[in-house]
Simulated assay, not measured.
Amino acid sequence: MKVLAAMSGGVDSAVAAARAVDAGHEVVGVHLALSRMPGTLRTGSRGCCTIEDSRDAWRACEKLGIPYYTWDFSERFKEDVVDDFVAEYAAGRTPNPCMRCNERIKFAALLEKALALGFDAVCTGHYAQVVRTDDGSLELHRAADWAKDQSYVLGVLTAEQLERCLFPLAETPSKDLVRAEAAERGLSVAAKPDSHDICFIPDGDTRGWLNERIDMTEGTILDTEGNELGTHAGAQAFTVGQRKGLNIGRPAPDGRPRFVLEVRPKDNTVVVGSKEMLAVDRIVGIRPSWAGAALAEEATGEWFDCHLQVRAHGDTVPARARVGLPSADSTADGTADSTQAPDGGTWVIELDEPLTGVAPGQTAVLYRGTRVLGQSTIDTAVNMARVA
């Protein structure tokens, strides 16, 4: 099989490519240049797609004896990931750029180009498993090493894309074994730190970065009763669950910390309240997609049991979900659901246990056991008792 190995310059993608070679595939390595002005060097574990990363990817390919290329995807990355990130924050939502990168760059633009060039599959260093069932369909599952599991950020993959994906690290029990294998193979990236945070904001100052790209204006900070508590420099710089940086100046009547409960960009206000008020038990997600075959309940509209995860390394909580209700329908608790989206419907998710700090724009990924069912973008997240 002719395989295109996506080489980030890190240890995971290098070992994944090596294993693809060992499996007898015809492997070609490619590094994606996602920035027109990459930094010369990384800062510890911050940042990626730097000149240093491209050189590490080249050295790994040279060691493995496979061809190496660099593809310029910087314009596509800017439009589909960076500009989307800015637009989502400007609308008062909290996006996950890694989800967008996987959806639109690594498993859309890259895979599309790979297939056009005659490759059969794309290989990456993600920790996740593709499982073929008895009926021949494919499912996405968690990796053997749950501590490194990356199935959450791959929840956007479709059945067609899973057919063309190779994840050679799927059954590796720990990252330490991957590093040990890299050292044994003589790969120079064996001890290279993992990258984290947002790759295009390597210093980690998201608010400062956004201030340069969104027109921020001073607005008010309100409590849940509508009382003005203070001012802020721009509502778009806040996210639900945030505690630091409120600068209210006086404590709450009970002396307890306040957290951001809601961001309202239309009137440029931020609503704050107690930590308990962050708890949500009902989520409506838009733009849903199934990671593999859809459940039978998609056609019937019935509720199905699942577990919900809203952060890349967050815990899951038991829940039940159903495909979007017509706007005139109602949920089990009798509340009308007027959030039916015309572009693909919605997922209505009711949690058995409340979650805190859930923000519009985050991604809701549904699981059943180790299987990833699919994902949707959170449009609303509420506590039904509080609403009532």
Score class of each variant (00 low, 15 high):
Gly249Arg: 05
Gly208Ala: 07
Ala144Leu: 10
Val153Asp: 00
Ile201Ser: 07
Ala147Tyr: 13
Ser174Lys: 01
His232Arg: 11
Glu218Trp: 04
Pro257Leu: 12
Asp197Phe: 01
Ala180His: 06
Cys165Gln: 03
Asp215Asn: 11
Arg258Asp: 09
Leu229Glu: 14
Asp176Ile: 04
Leu169Met: 12
Pro193Lys: 14
Leu162Ser: 03
Gly219Glu: 09
Ile221Gln: 05
Leu169Asp: 02
Ala237Pro: 00
Arg250Lys: 13
Arg258Phe: 08
Arg179Ile: 08
Arg258Asn: 08
Arg256Ile: 05
Asp205Thr: 14
Gly234Cys: 07
Ile214Gly: 05
Trp146Leu: 15
Val189Ser: 06
Gly234Val: 11
Glu160Ile: 01
Pro257Thr: 11
Ser195Gln: 06
Arg258Gly: 02
His196Tyr: 10
Gly255Trp: 11
Gly219Asp: 06
Ala144Trp: 01
Thr217Phe: 06
Ala144Asn: 02
Asp215Ala: 15
Thr158Val: 07
Ala191Asp: 15
Pro168Met: 15
Glu163Tyr: 00
Ile201Gln: 02
Trp209Glu: 06
Glu218Arg: 15
Leu229Val: 15
Leu222Arg: 10
Ile214Trp: 07
Leu154Val: 03
Leu177Pro: 01
Ala233Met: 09
Asn227Leu: 14
Tyr152Asn: 04
Ser188Pro: 12
Ala237Gly: 08
Gln150Cys: 03
Ala233Ile: 09
Glu218Gln: 12
Thr231Glu: 13
Ala144Glu: 13
Gln150Trp: 01
Asn227Phe: 10
Ala159Phe: 03
Pro173Glu: 15
Asp203Ala: 08
Glu184Val: 01
Asp205Gly: 14
Lys192Tyr: 06
Leu222Trp: 03
Gly219Tyr: 05
Thr206Val: 15
Glu212Cys: 03
Pro253Ser: 14
Arg213Val: 11
Arg142Asp: 10
Trp146Lys: 15
Ser188Gly: 10
Arg258Ser: 12
Pro168Asp: 09
Pro202Trp: 03
Arg256Val: 02
Phe200Ser: 10
Asp203Ile: 07
Phe167Trp: 08
Thr239Ala: 06
Ala182His: 08
His141Ala: 07
Val156Asp: 02
Gly230Met: 08
Asp215Glu: 15
Asp254Cys: 10
Lys192Gly: 03
Cys199Arg: 10
Leu210Glu: 07
Val178Asp: 02
Gln236Tyr: 01
Arg179Val: 04
Ala237Ile: 06
Ala237Glu: 00
Ala190Gly: 05
Lys148Arg: 10
Asp194Phe: 09
Ser188Phe: 09
Val153Tyr: 05
Glu228Gly: 05
His232Gln: 07
Asp254Gly: 07
Pro173Thr: 08
Gly155Ile: 02
Tyr152Phe: 14
Lys148Gln: 14
Asn247Phe: 13
Leu157Val: 03
Thr224Gly: 05
Ala252Trp: 05
Pro173Lys: 08
Leu187Asp: 02
Leu229Lys: 09
Arg185Tyr: 09
Ala147Glu: 14
Arg207Lys: 15
Thr158Ala: 10
Ile248Ala: 04
Leu169Arg: 02
Ala144His: 04
Asp205Leu: 11
Leu154Arg: 06
Thr158Cys: 11
